[in-house]
């Protein structure tokens, strides 16, 4: 099918383009490890504080980092699409007979692959620090992170391509990122929050994804929060891919 072929061509080009700058590859791999080394020890001290969720500190912390990786790794790709648009690459590709949706899907696929590599590095490093997690749970966790990454990278491409300006895009990311970060319990679990803050955070879908991932890490796969978190991620990924494809299609309107 030409859709898959076109998607693979775009994926391959995007991947080779990323590899042409080894500095970014190294920074990309260092990032999760820095979080682990510089923030992890702080969190270990917190386990005795009332309200800290059950489980090993790493089982609480690593799922949060994974979700953060998915959200933030994806969010910034919009800058790249603005750069590509300005270089004339997007218009050039839209004149080819290639499938419009492939133009975004191939890029999203590259982002998900990068994210998966980062996530695996993160988990392996955390295992050295003392994280214990069943293998099946790990696969489930990676699937959820992949869905998150695909969602945010599509949304970011969509936003970048509709705004076509870094100056407008950067504040959007900041406005969106900070509340999501604080209200999802990524850094500190929401179970430690006062009641009003917890209610606010309940509206944030990402909190439930983090909670679901933590349950998976504890091996509690058959509790309600897990299908709930996965359901939310699936809905998000569908909405995001649809939005991204729509923005690409509407470029010619």
């Amino acid at each position: 099918m030409s859709f898959f072929r076109d998607t693979f061509i775009i994926f391959r080009r995007a991947t080779l383009l990323s590899l042409q700058n080894p500095a970014w590859v190294i920074i990309g791999l260092m990032q999760p490890i820095l979080y682990l080394v510089l923030f992890g020890p702080l969190l270990l001290r917190m386990t005795s504080v009332p309200g800290f969720p059950p489980g090993n500190a790493w089982q609480v912390f690593v799922p949060g980092l994974l979700v953060q990786l998915g959200i933030f790794g994806g969010s910034f790709v919009g800058f790249a699409i603005i750069n590509e648009w300005r270089s004339g690459v997007i218009d050039r590709m839209m004149v080819t007979p290639a499938h419009r949706v492939s133009l975004i899907a191939g890029r999203v696929l590259r982002d998900v692959m990068v994210l998966m590599i980062q996530a695996i590095v993160l988990v392996l490093a955390a295992m050295l620090f003392g994280l214990r997690v069943p293998f099946g749970a790990l696969l489930l966790a990676l699937a959820l992170v992949a869905m998150l990454g695909a969602s945010f990278s599509s949304l970011s491409y969509a936003a970048g391509l509709s705004m076509k300006s870094e100056d407008a895009f950067a504040p959007l990311i900041n406005t969106f990122a900070l509340p999501v970060l604080l209200l999802s319990g990524i850094l500190l679990p929401m179970s430690m929050a006062p009641a009003w803050l917890r209610y606010v955070s309940d509206v944030n879908p990402f909190k439930h994804m983090v909670e679901a991932l933590r349950a998976v890490f504890r091996g509690e796969i058959f509790t309600f929060i897990v299908p709930f978190g996965f359901g939310l991620s699936l809905a998000l990924v569908l909405i995001s891919l649809w939005t991204g494809a729509r923005v690409f299609r509407n470029q010619t309107r």
Partner: peptide, 17 residues
């Protein structure tokens, strides 16, 4: 189609594009 503003990424190798 050859657009006014160019068609290639600075960072990309000619062969890749």
């Amino acid at each position: 189609y050859v657009a006014q503003g160019g068609t290639t990424m600075r960072e990309a190798k000619v062969s890749l594009e």
